[in-house]
Amino acid sequence: MNVLQIGAHTFSSRLILGTGKFGNVQSMLDAIRASGTELVTVALRRFNREQVEHDLFTALSTIEGLTLMPNTSGASNAAEAVKAAHISRELSGSPFIKVEIHPNPQHLMPDPIETYEASRILASEDFLVMPYIPADPVLAKRLEDAGCASVMPLGSAIGSGQGLATAEMIKLIIRESSIPVIVDAGLRSPSEACAAMEMGCEAVLVNSAIAAAENPAQMAAAFASAVKAGYKARAAGIMPKSGSAVATSPLTSFLGKTS
């Protein structure tokens, strides 16, 4: 299937963008357009009068066909995340929720216990739950059984740019999952997004790597190409590795000798 399917929703792009860390709203909008994404994350915060000129909802509404996936960042436990999800659904009208509970600002690692509990509750309330999780195959399977629409294991720490440090664990998650596996966090370059897609991920979620690039729109386009290439390569069937050389040309000599 050429489209990304999450629940009953389909997306032609397999690149999901975070909206944080951009230098300004225009830079973010340019990157979203250049990426071709149809799904972006947003966060919920107390209204600030100083942000009136930059109302995010209005800004994102200028891009046709964009679906919002609010996150629960700022929640330190399941109860807070569930509350944030309810408010976000009222505000966005979107069934998607990125469950994100990382109580320790030093490493921002997701709390697996609170994440599981919040996801279980929200899945039972017909949210399309997309939990941000450690790359743990057991937790991923438990979340699938709890009704999550996808799982989003981290490649490495949020914003670290350390790439696919958890690649082997992500492969195990993919092998066991029947819901989309989406790498979220840590990617630094398009080649890593391509590798994640070749590995079997259904999509990747990128924020810092694009927002912190010198030219965010150009980097967004580069990530879009890489995600497409990785997906296409996987669909084409990647050759198996061999422990020794396998010749691509005939090994027979041609100058005065016969084989």
Partner: peptide, 26 residues
């Protein structure tokens, strides 16, 4: 409090009111 109720809901002493909006986030 849904939008259709906001013009009629009168606040009372000690009410805890939160006004929230979306901001950029990953």
């Amino acid at each position: 409090i849904y939008p259709e109720k906001r013009s009629s809901l009168v606040l009372r002493e000690n009410d805890q009111v939160e006004v929230l909006s979306f901001v950029e986030g990953g």
